[in-house]
Design a protein around this nucleic acid. Structure first.
Lengths: 233, 233
DNA sequence: CGGGACTTTGATATTTCTCAAACAATGTGG
DNA sequence: CCACATTGTTTGAGAAATATCAAAGTCCCG
């Protein structure tokens, strides 16, 4: 990724995100730094956790993007949610827990053991807030799929990604690096890759979105938000 | 509803559901019975909890059906999830929490304070299982909306309701009482009421579904499940 | 510089929506 | 117990959104 690597007191995106949910104390920072050392790298397209797998270790996404996917028997697939740096991966307060979806690495990814909440009350609160947020984003995804048209779905998803990335300092000024292919967006938004392509063109044409290579920019997030009926969280 | 009323040791649907998630001990039964006494009734169509409302009391749905709804500014609405007897309503492990959706009574409904998990380890596990299940059903809803067509969406929703009602002893033999209007189904499934109507007719025509009044029957749930690509949870 | 993965384009098919109206069921007050 | 209002269901015809299929163009990596 394009970001500062591990060093004495690095403000990594993952830490920045958790800290923005709840200011972390020294213990939490220490525990996170410790686990980051032992992070393991997983290559893009590889599975991180498989559906139906028993999990007893809570994980934290340190770097890169991942997707939470459900596969149907006939080959159709639905991306349920995207996971960004700082997002917990498996919630197992009461392990072992059975995965109800598959977690796949979108880019190369670093994953570590999630420090136990008992190391710091602040960390526990950060986890709780994080879970609430994830829940809220799932509701947003349901609303997108159920009630927005193609243009609105795409705009709404981009706004959500922007919002989430900003939290970890990975976006600013409506601008971020977009590793998703149009097919992945289609799988998340219940559309066809072809239709996503055409709709993205429409967004660019109307000036709601600019892009050069992987760089993506939403010049006026507020206006876009209003146009999709999206509410703040 | 058509079920036995409160009495000395009543196996109410709500208790049956929780007990099926994790066999409850005496303490849990007692705590539940105590709270059931103080349940308050809410009339159909009334809001139980409003979006953006601060909640600091965890609630339990004792009787009746409710819906978890998101309203867009332009009047569109999406039913995110249905709540059935025995379902916890607000998860506030770390209150206060802000509602990210509105909870509306579909039928007349009885709601009580949810006994604290500390009264019994079994109850705590039941809550944890319940939360996992709710999460799984949200993923199922996303997949429905994203990747199933109208016929499959309806079949899949009916199968889910059957499965959930069976847990509380409110359905048997593929048969249950269906209080949802076609418009509510439409709001849940991202369809139009008109299209839901036509699709229900198709389901009846092909013999996948029977109904007389509010009674609904799925003669062969297994076959239906296979035809929608639905997986077990 | 070849090959795979992504993106883009065009033509056509299918699904789902919209609007409008009739019909049925259900409940309420007199 | 009737008449009316309200809510929910059904039908039809035409319009709009999205999918499908096939092929060409681009980009990037090794």
């Amino acid at each position: 990724m394009t970001l500062p690597q591990l060093s004495p007191t690095p403000i990594t995106p993952a830490v920045a995100r958790l800290d923005s949910l709840e200011p972390l104390d020294r213990q939490a920072h220490a525990a996170l730094a410790r686990e980051f050392q032992r992070a393991r790298r997983i290559k893009a397209r590889r599975e991180i956790l498989a559906e139906r797998q028993q999990v007893d270790e809570p994980l934290l996404l340190v770097n890169g993007w991942a997707a939470c996917v459900r596969n149907l028997e006939d080959g159709r697939r639905q991306i349920v949610n995207f996971l960004l740096p700082g997002d917990p991966i498996a919630w197992c307060d009461h392990p072992p827990m059975t995965m109800s979806s598959t977690i796949v690495a979108i880019t190369d990814v670093d994953v570590c053991h999630a420090p136990d909440a008992s190391v710091s009350p602040a960390l526990r609160r950060a986890y709780a807030r994080s879970r609430d947020l994830e829940y809220t984003y799932l509701l947003a995804q349901i609303t997108r799929l159920g009630r927005l048209n193609a243009l609105e779905r795409i705009a709404d998803l981009l706004l959500e990604l922007l919002e989430r990335l900003e939290r970890g300092g990975m976006a600013a000024d409506g601008c971020f690096v977009m590793p998703l292919t149009q097919e992945m967006m289609a799988d998340a938004l219940g559309l066809t890759a072809v239709h996503v392509n055409r709709t993205l063109q429409a967004l660019r044409r109307e000036g709601s979105m600019l892009s050069r290579g992987r760089e993506l920019r939403l010049p006026d997030p507020e206006a876009l938000r209003r146009s999709t009926g999206r509410r703040a969280n």
